[in-house]
Design a protein around this nucleic acid. Structure first.
Lengths: 344, 344
DNA sequence: GTGAAAGCGCTAACAG
DNA sequence: CTGTTAGCGCTTTCAC
């Protein structure tokens, strides 16, 4: 029923190859012929069969986005939808189709693995860097299969990845609190087995040490990137009477804020809070959040760009792209009330 | 380089057809032969080429999720990630691959159209019902292509869809406010050209009329399913001194809550608020939200189920599946303080 | 129960 | 510039 190249060839009085050339925008076709063929294509509404094309050309024009099971916050943290947006946008623009692979169970992982690691379905994959010990990375690493990891991989691997400089970003944020004169600065970290958590804690420590302070391990509470996780971590910190909190995500900062207020304390007067991400709600939260802005959409965009470069040009060696962040000052850190100037 | 059926056939001393039968779990193979072939497959790590399979069988085992441009709240409303979760889960379980199509520009729409409307790439699509006037639906309607619309379509079409009974759900919610004795009940609607908004407003009116009240058009404010939209709508309503608000989404309810508190009023003492969705944050919002719970994940799950039935059994006529909702009572409607019993 | 053979619709040399 | 000719790797009759 659906039309084939052959049909179009017949109707335009040329061969199948010529039609193929026209469809693929190849140069070696006489202009008048090209026009005639295009005309027929338009009239008939012909579209080449994707599967046949994939098979013959060994290219699918499709990439996969893999979100490992460990990234359970996909549904609770607006970070991921935004990332996905950037990725989808870039795919559209480059005429790639995006396949979404959410891994939730061990079973999923096994089912999905062959689909995301062979050229027969995907031209390449974007892998959200998950837990340390993530199997998928190791499987992928010695394949020739094009991969870009989103986020610094747990251990050094010979793969391209894209990340922000979490250490510096966190360090800057905490340093801001230091300069504002806070004495007991605590942090709510993400899950301990995720690189971005590790890096942000490191930045936290670095800023404190740079000011000649000591690290109090009790002031480092582990959240899990959820609102509730932030809340629980804050409840745990409260008895230690911190006067400032650096939370590794805006969502956790919100949970912390809830806990602080529930305890009858004020933000930022009694406890200052700084978040991470600068998601839309950061500015509309009960107390507008001072936070580290990540270029999330661009991040996804860039990831696709690198992947496509890998697919189409096989660019080697692997690239590491680090994107910039920016500290956004709002109410929750109290710099306004303290009247301390903001650095440019 | 990668293995083919032929390779496996050679190594197991059978024909390509037999290997194909084994791979596809067909019955007509002697058990001993089946075992031998399976053994070779395991040893070699063979996986059939997806493109070749698609081409020969005219099936891709892939479905698309299409989010039209009008669904701009994809990135601001946690509703969509949850829906996507349910869909992805169901796809995994049924061995389908999920393609994600986010349409943002007119250009995207044109590029994507051929990809989502032909059997050559997808076996079927899930279309998030968008704006009234959405082109895609009309294009899809007279194709034989399997489609399930998520949400009631703007105008009656001969397609399967899945939805909740928004009218009843809203009516129940507002009725709850009525029974609590609120006198000036306002509503914050979604975008006027979306069916779920229309239906929820209708439910709102229905509850009021059922109580013998009149509809005051000024008490119906239009939001846009964002937090800011809810905030703005509430600011517009505030001068009219409503004593209760029914918001068409939790996100908007949150915006309304912010506006109310900013005006120095208390929830629920001065203004009661009821939301819609029961997203995770509804229970942790500054005032826990009374809201209509939608079975979002199940919703996505069910949508896939219907689509697969359509693909595999060509089930006709189109099915309309309506899922149930539940009113979740928390603090924001004030029923606790008013001591009014909650219906079973 | 198993194998041979004919495609699925397209791309990509290779001639001309 | 254009047509001919092989496949891409698998599914699926149709014989045996």
């Amino acid at each position: 029923m659906p039309l084939t190249l052959e049909d179009i060839a017949l109707k335009s009085g040329v061969s199948r190859s010529t039609v193929s050339r026209v469809v693929n925008g190849q140069p070696n076709v006489r202009e008048s012929v090209r026009q005639r063929v295009l005309q027929v294509i338009r009239e008939t509404g012909f579209h080449p069969n994707t599967a046949a094309r994939m098979l013959a050309s060994q290219r699918s024009w499709m990439i996969g986005l893999v979100l490992p099971r460990s990234v359970s916050s996909f549904f609770t943290d607006p970070y991921f939808p935004r990332l996905t947006q950037g990725i989808a946008q870039a795919c559209n623009q480059n005429n790639y189709t995006l396949g979404l692979f959410l891994i939730e169970t061990k079973e999923d992982e096994e089912k999905i693995y062959p689909r995301v690691s062979r050229k027969s379905l995907l031209d390449g994959v974007l892998l959200q860097s998950g837990e340390i010990g993530e199997q998928l990375i190791d499987h992928l690493v010695d394949t020739e299969f094009p991969v870009v990891i989103i986020g610094r991989p747990p251990h050094p691997v010979d793969l391209s990845y894209i990340d922000v400089d979490n250490v510096s970003a966190a360090c800057n944020a905490v340093n801001h609190l230091v300069r504002l004169g806070y004495q007991r600065i605590a942090t709510i970290a993400g899950m301990a087995n995720h690189t971005e958590s590790i890096d942000r804690v490191e930045g936290y420590k670095k800023a404190l040490l740079a000011d000649g302070r000591e690290i109090d391990a009790n002031l480092i509470a582990e959240g899990d990137f959820t609102e509730n996780g932030g809340y629980r971590a804050m409840r745990q910190l409260l008895p230690l009477q911190p006067d400032a909190i650096f939370a590794a995500s805006d969502v956790m900062a919100l949970g912390a804020l809830r806990a602080v207020r529930e305890a009858g304390l004020r933000v930022p007067e009694d406890v200052a809070i700084v978040g991470f991400d600068d998601l839309p709600f950061a500015s509309t939260s009960p107390v507008p959040l001072t936070t580290v802005r990540q270029p999330i959409v661009n991040f996804g965009y860039k990831a696709v760009e690198i992947l496509i470069d890998l697919i189409e040009n096989g660019a080697r060696p692997p690239r590491q792209v680090i994107m910039g962040t920016e500290l956004i000052i709002r109410e929750s850190c109290g710099s306004r009330s303290k009247g301390i100037p903001i650095e440019g």
